[in-house]
Structure formats: C-alpha cells, structure tokens
C-alpha cells in the first residue's frame, strides 16, 4: 500500500469507526433492553445522546481535566487509524494503553472522590487485562511471525484454531474494555453503583461526548482485534465478531458486578492458564 493509500484509508477509518461503534452501542442497548423485556431506545440513540451532549454546557471541576480527555480522544483515534490501516499491533496496544492512562489521569485530576476511586479501579482493571492483550499479540506473532496487522490478517492460517485459549482470554478482556458486567466496577454504563459513574462522573457536555466517541473507537478496535483471530476467512471473522458481541451482552446480563479482587484474579488466572498455556503449546508443538 502506498503512503497515499494508507492516508486515505486512515481518513476513512477515522470517519467510519465511530459510526460503527455508535451503531454497535445502539444495538447493544436495544438487545440488552430486549433481554430484560423492555422496548429499549431507538437504534440511533447513542448518536442523539452525543449530539445532545455537544450542545450542553461543559461544567468542570478543574479546567485541566479536559486537557487529558483531549489526549485520550486523540490517542484513541490514532489507535483506531493505526490498527485498521494495518500497522504494528504492539504499537496499537501501547497507544490503546496510553489513551486509557490519559483517561485515568483526567479522572484523577477531577479531584472528586467518585472519579478518584473510579480511576484507582480502572488502573486495577488495566493491570488485569493488559497481560492478556500482550499475550494475544505474542501468540499471533508465534503463529504468523509478524507483529504487523496486515501480515497477521493475510496469514492463511485460522489463528483461532491455533490460539483458542488466547481467543477466549481475549473475550474476557473485551468484557472489561467494553465496561460490561461483571467487570464494570470502574465505570458502568448505567451509573448505578456506589461510585456513581466512576471514572467519568465529573465530565460533562462536550468532554463527555468526546469520551463517548472515543469509547466507540475503542469498541471497534477491540472487536477488530477479536476478529483478527478469524482473519483468514473474512466472512467467519464478521460472524465471530458478531457472536462475541452477543456473548458479551449475554454475560453482561447474567452476572453481578464483582469486586476488584475477583476481577483481578479472574483476569490473571485466565491469562495464566489459557494465555500462557496456549502460547507454550504453540511454542513447543510448532
């Protein structure tokens, strides 16, 4: 791909990713509602919400908290562009982590006890899922001999067959990343928890809208990574991403929110057993 093509693709991604993410959020809300035998909002409700947020007054505790949110947003856009233009998966993961760190910093900066505790919990969650994400990248490297997303995607091998443990582990990460029960302890969608909305409690108006859009980017990137396990068969990748998405909604609706100790233990045990185990198998049976 020529640099010009890459740049064009990047622009397409920057525009299309949040639309896809927003639609997914809409489907999420509609499906969750149906699972709870409610009607649920219209499919485009997330977009309406964001439009409304943009029109609202931005009230801040400290002006500098918004500064971090802008960085969070920019890095999230960068992550999406990097991933979908087929860049380095390690760089993508680091950009994603950096973006999350900026959100945590913003929450710390807001100096509200709710967002403070939310930020602490978010750090714990990052500790919980980060090993698994890195292991997934390592696993993909072991099979395809490359860290570049394009190469991984073009590999004729169905990664999920070689890395089933990693794939399952990655689904757990997805639950955390999409802020779903049982791992929604840092910030839940419904603000029905002891720390209100946790990490995003103190953001409002345009800043909150940016966080929301950044979250859409995040959703598309992590679902894209999950689809990467099936990249050899594009139709299967799409189906798999859909199934994973549905599974996450189901999990969201059949679990209570766990406490941080259990969240950490679950993620690490999954990473250790499924992730490391899978990698060892791939490494020695190659």
């Amino acid at each position: 791909m020529s640099p010009l093509d890459t740049a064009l693709l990047a622009i397409v991604v920057v525009v299309a990713a949040p639309i896809a993410g927003g639609l997914l959020a809409g489907i999420d809300r509609k499906l969750s509602a149906r699972m709870q035998s409610r009607w649920g909002p219209p499919l485009l409700q997330p977009f309406y919400d964001v439009r409304k947020l943009f029109r609202k007054e931005t009230i801040v505790v400290r002006r500098s908290q918004n500064f971090y949110v802008y960085f969070f947003f920019v890095f999230m856009v960068f992550t999406a562009a990097l991933f979908f233009t087929g860049g380095d998966i390690l760089l993508t993961i680091f950009a994603l982590t950096l973006a999350s760190i900026f959100l945590v910093l913003a929450a710390y900066k807001a100096s509200s006890p709710y967002s403070f505790i939310g930020a602490e919990r978010e750090l714990i969650l990052m500790m919980a899922y980060e090993p698994m994400v890195l292991l997934a990248a390592v696993g993909m490297y072991l099979v395809t001999r490359s860290f570049i997303v394009v190469d991984i995607a073009r590999s004729p091998q169905l990664l999920a067959l070689r890395l089933p443990g990693l794939f399952i582990g990655f689904v757990v990460v997805l639950v955390v990343k999409m802020r779903k029960s049982p791992f929604d302890l840092a910030a839940s969608h419904h603000a029905h928890q002891e720390i209100v909305r946790g990490i995003t409690t103190e953001f409002s108006g345009r800043t909150l809208a940016l966080i929301e859009i950044a979250h859409w980017y995040e959703t598309t990137v992590v679902l894209g990574m999950a689809a990467l396990f099936f990249a050899a068969l594009p139709w299967l990748a799409a189906v798999a991403a859909g199934c994973v998405f549905f599974l996450i909604l189901l999990v969201d609706n059949v679990f209570a929110r766990v406490k941080w100790q259990v969240a950490l233990a679950t993620a690490w045990i999954t990473a250790a057993a499924l992730g490391v185990g899978n990698i060892l198998v791939v490494f020695f049976l190659r």
């Binding site: 699972m35 035998s37 409610r38 189901l250 609706n253 059949v254």
Partner: peptide
Amino acid sequence: GMSRTIMRNLFSGPAT
C-alpha cells in the same frame, strides 16, 4: 443461571 430467562425474554418480545 439467568441466561434461560434472558433468552426467553429476548424472543418473547418486550413486556413494557
């Protein structure tokens, strides 16, 4: 344990 109820809800339409 809740998944049976949830799947039933999903296919039986909203109660609201």
